[in-house]
Computed example of a mutant assay.
Amino acid sequence: MRTARWIAGIGLLPGVLLGGATALTLAWRERLPDHLPNQGGVGDRPMVTTISVDMLTAILIGVALAAWITGLVVFLAAGRLPRIPRHWLRTGVQVAVAAVAGAAVTILLMVLGAALDATTAADVHISWAYFAAIMAVPAVAAVLSGLVATLLAGRAPAQPSDPTATTATASAPQPARPAATADDERLLWWESRSLRPVVWAMVALAVSGLLLAAVLVPFVGLPGWAGLAPTVTAPVLLPFTRYRLAIDARGVRLTFGLVRWRLPLTAIAAAEETRLDAATWLTRGMLRGATDPTLPLLPGQVLALRLTDGTRRLVTCRDVATAVDTVNTLRARATAR
């Protein structure tokens, strides 16, 4: 069932959108002029430049097709990831491809629909109301297409169960209580947390794309629709809106989108609680980059892992005290064996 959902989401949904738009464009071709207004021609504004119908069709269908091909490549490459990161990456790609395809074909069909049965570009008359609809409807189509893609992706797979493990979530963390003979014990403590700054960034991209297109299109014409790029690419951030931290008898593991790292217990000398202020966090982020494994995802109280090589790793954690106790307890067990 899950495979069928993925096929429908990354394969059939963009294919239906592109195939339907292409078929309708070909059916309309005899009713369309050779050129369309590119700049001006809205309301009482005089037409300044034109663009050929074939060029416009090639640009918009080409953008959607390029997004689809790129999405398929990333989708297949994600098969090497663990189940949960793989699911979120594929969901983000699927949503982004559907949103781009939905917006592109809607723009194309609305622009061509306004020119049906016109003899020349000068005969194409677009009212300000229709122009406003061309601004708004593609964004709605992108949202609806992305929603369908999200529904087709389904829920993330459940964490692997382990009857000997004691688990905790970020909302109700619990200290680990490992058994003395549990050599096969795996997951002892974990938390999953939403990263609001990433969510806000995703919303800001979506809104800024709409505003940018609203400003550019009246002045530069059809090329101004490129301003929607932030809106249709915002869903790509979806896999990065949550992180997962797990501590078990093998080490400390963190998953954040495509970023994954693991520290074995043998590499950890001790764990302690410390505080990272926002200014230092921002400075380190600008100097080292957000993918630096030593950089916590959020400032505030963090888990500090002192490593055996003398370095220190800081980790974002909601219940730092419990995480410190868990790591030190497991380190003591590993040392006593």
Rank of each mutant, 00 (worst) to 15 (best):
Leu56Glu: 11
Val140Phe: 12
Ala149Trp: 05
Val48Ser: 02
Gly146Tyr: 13
Pro33Cys: 04
Ile61Phe: 05
Leu147Ser: 09
Ala99Gly: 04
Leu112Glu: 03
Val148Cys: 08
Ala136Arg: 12
His87Pro: 01
Ile61Gln: 14
Ala149His: 02
Asp54Lys: 09
Thr119Cys: 00
Phe131Gly: 11
Ala132Ile: 12
Ala96Gly: 04
Leu81Ile: 02
Val100His: 04
Val124Cys: 04
Leu56Arg: 13
Ala149Phe: 04
Ala103Ser: 00
Leu108Glu: 06
Asp117Ile: 11
Gly92Ile: 06
Leu56Lys: 13
Ala129Cys: 13
Ala99Ile: 01
Ala136Trp: 05
Leu112Cys: 05
Leu36Ile: 03
Val93Phe: 11
Gly40His: 10
Ala77Tyr: 08
Trp128Cys: 08
Ser127Trp: 06
Leu60Gln: 06
Ala104Thr: 03
Ala132Arg: 14
Ala149Met: 07
Thr150Ala: 12
Arg86Tyr: 05
Met110Pro: 05
Ala121Ile: 02
Met55Tyr: 03
Gly71Pro: 11
Phe75Ile: 05
Ala121Gln: 07
Gly71Val: 10
Ala99His: 00
Ile84Gln: 09
Ser145Cys: 14
His35Pro: 00
Arg86Lys: 07
Thr150Asn: 08
Glu30Leu: 01
Ser52Val: 03
His35Asn: 14
Ile134Trp: 02
Leu89Cys: 10
Asp54Met: 08
Arg90Asp: 01
Thr120Val: 11
Val63Lys: 12
Val148Thr: 11
Ile107Lys: 10
Val148Phe: 10
Val140Tyr: 01
Leu56Cys: 13
Ala66Glu: 11
Val73Thr: 07
Pro82Trp: 07
Met110Lys: 09
Ile51Ser: 13
Arg83Ala: 15
Thr91Val: 07
Ala114Tyr: 01
Gln94Ala: 11
Ile59Arg: 13
Ile107Pro: 08
Val105Cys: 09
Ala77Glu: 12
Met110Gln: 07
Ala99Pro: 01
Val42Gln: 02
Ala67Cys: 12
Gly40Trp: 01
Ala103Lys: 00
Arg86Gln: 04
Arg80Gly: 06
Ser52Pro: 04
Ala99Met: 06
Val97Asp: 14
Val137Arg: 07
Gly79His: 14
Gly92Trp: 07
Leu81Pro: 03
Ala141Arg: 03
His87Ser: 01
Ala98Lys: 04
Ala98Gln: 06
Asp117Lys: 08
Phe131Gln: 15
Ala132Lys: 13
Val148Glu: 11
Ser145Pro: 06
Asp123Pro: 07
Leu116Thr: 09
Ala139Tyr: 13
Thr119Lys: 14
Thr50Trp: 11
Val73Ile: 13
Ala121Ser: 13
Trp88Tyr: 15
Ile51Ala: 12
Val97Ser: 14
Ile126Trp: 06
Met135Ser: 09
Val137Asn: 04
Ala121Val: 06
Leu36Glu: 04
Ala118Gln: 08
Arg83Pro: 02
Gly62Trp: 09
Gly92His: 01
Val148Lys: 02
Thr120Gln: 14
Glu30Met: 02
Ala98Met: 08
Phe131Pro: 09
Asp44Lys: 02
Val53Leu: 08
Val53Ile: 12
Val105Phe: 04
Phe131Ile: 10
Ala115Met: 05
Met55Gly: 01
Asp44Thr: 09
